[in-house]
Design a protein around this nucleic acid. Structure first.
Lengths: 203, 203, 203, 203
DNA sequence: TATGAATGAGTGTTCATTCAT
DNA sequence: CATGAATGAACACTCATTCAT
């Protein structure tokens, strides 16, 4: 009983800190976001953060992991749709809807964390790598499935096709973010799939 | 005369420091690259760097600017080719060849610097923005030209098409970098343009 | 009745914490032994320690006091032996046996705490001082008694003789500790007294 | 030329910091002496200390080493005296004179560092150990020499005799320090040797 | 009264920048 | 100007202590 309350309280604190860290990292970047900022944003004392996370890197890695898990959960949906490309389109819509709702930065970390210099930190590199590779693997699997269905051309390597599709998604998120995150991101999923399939050539 | 020599000497120092900074930032990232590292790499004393650049941010911004200028110069080539898409393909090849020769990181900073936390630094943000926007503008102009030539479909916004094309480039550079920068990047230019134009659909 | 039980319980807790603190301080030293370590060693929560001791310094001082009391109690023994030096020898044996049984570190704190930097802490200084001075006083009293019995030379100040005897004891404990606390410490009592009395000169 | 000046300046800074650290550690103990205190005592900025020493432990170890070297140099004196015990007495006088002149704490660290909790720090442990063992070895060698000269009794182990002699010295320094470092320490060297040789027994 | 999480002052250390030579 | 050492503000992290439950 007592333990249950404790447990719940701990979970609430942890979540509050993670959410605060997500906002703070998003606003200031990894290095400029101080632990004190995160704690203040979460409404706790600086030391409290260390009751839940070993250090700054672990806070960051935990955000990544949480984001990855959420996004992957979303991308497990629509499993009943047989057509791999149509399934991908639906999943993309859901993912974009999620991003639009939860703020870009979070999504960028999850999917685009790639180039930032916190990647240099060994501690988070693994987390990022795993997150990234999971996305690559899923996309490549989908592409392979679509190829074997005869839906996609075979004269371009599966790896390249997957990279291209992911690149289209990234670019869409990126320019949407640059534009100030206007409503309507989910609709871009259709554009991406359409462009990926038919190309930009005039008919 | 004396002044000319002095001027030359200053330029040589400046260039040596920039080149050293480029390697160092590329290797370590913005925050982990210390001014002392850069100075050592350049073979000068730490204080000397401050005779040529106001501060660390300015060193970084100068690298970006230099990179942008080089890349834009490359992308001014092939002006004699009338077909906008073919012109784009050739410029892409040249740009990729340049990247392959000069190290990715540099190219990433130039083109993809987007999400890293040094972007949060006001001092470099403008530089990055200008660099990025210049690329966007050129691409959009090219797309518009191709649309007006009847080469591209009109049912997708020019902005989206441009974002998509840049996304394909980014993705290509990114996955090439992940793969350890194997030779053969320029050839990918063809794949990008082909995929952008025809799409991935099986014929 | 209820109070008696409660009182007993308090005493048991207090003793458990002191014993745990003794082991922990002995193993890690004053600064590196954290209150959490002590609490964990005692099997209680961190806060509980503060129900029995005002702060860390008081825990430490209490160990010293407890140790002093135990050692002094031991050194109250053999009161029936008239010969002061023989009495000293017997008490030394008993003290050494106690040390061998209870771990050196504890004994060092009690007797030798002298040079460690927790002595700088005002809070424990008094305790240490009292402990130390009590030992000095007793030794000097014994020396005086032996001098007045005509057992000891009079051309060396009583204070010096006492310091020397205590120094021999310390050195013995110290080198025994360095050697890894091998069994046989009590037997050294004889060597000390013999050397103190006759000197090292060849006969 | 320029380098020579530089070198001299560096040596002066290093020495000033070491001297300041010696005073500060002596006054406050290892843990309570803050790097800022040491820097302030030396009249430099906090960061400057780190231009000369890797960290706090290294500052401390350097003091030990410097002290050891000085004391050992002193104890190399009087090599021309054939009688080992007389030689020891002279060296003891010189050492005590040095201690009286330079402050006890320094001497204690050098000779007695033994039980303090900075010994727990691996980084300084070696230094302390070496310092201590050097003293032990020299003393044992001297004892052996004296034994082979027929000057000392053979019924007590050389190790024990050496420990005893060192214990007498420690005790003398210790109680002298307790007494507030009154002038006259060197004269105690005679008392020590006399007591060590002849014992405390009334004639 | 036991608990164990929250607190926040305190500190070793780093490093961009300055400046005397 | 080049140099390289001095500077000191900044910050992640620790842990003795407090306090709500």
């Amino acid at each position: 009983m007592r333990d249950a309350v404790r447990e719940e309280s701990r979970a609430a604190y942890r979540e509050a800190i993670l959410a605060a860290a997500e906002r703070t990292f998003g606003r200031l970047g990894f290095h400029d976001a101080k632990m004190a900022d995160i704690a203040a944003e979460a409404g706790v004392a600086a030391g409290t953060v260390y009751n839940y996370f070993k250090n700054k890197d672990e806070v960051f890695a935990s955000i990544l992991q949480r984001g990855q898990e959420r996004v992957l959960a979303i991308q497990d949906g629509h499993a009943e749709v047989a057509d791999p490309l149509e399934r991908t389109r639906l999943r993309l819509r859901d993912t974009f809807a999620f991003l639009e709702e939860h703020g870009v930065l979070f999504g960028m970390f999850v999917r685009l964390g790639g180039f930032t210099d916190f990647l240099q930190k060994r501690a988070v590199e693994d987390q990022c790598d795993r997150s990234y590779m999971e996305g690559v693997n899923r996309t490549q699997a989908m592409i392979r499935e679509a190829v074997s269905c005869g839906q996609l051309r075979v004269d371009i390597a599966v790896e390249d096709l997957a990279a291209m599709l992911m690149g289209l998604c990234d670019a869409t998120i990126f320019s949407w973010s640059r534009a100030g995150c206007p409503p309507g991101l989910p609709a871009k999923a259709d554009t991406i799939v359409e462009l990926f399939l038919r190309g930009a050539h005039a008919p």
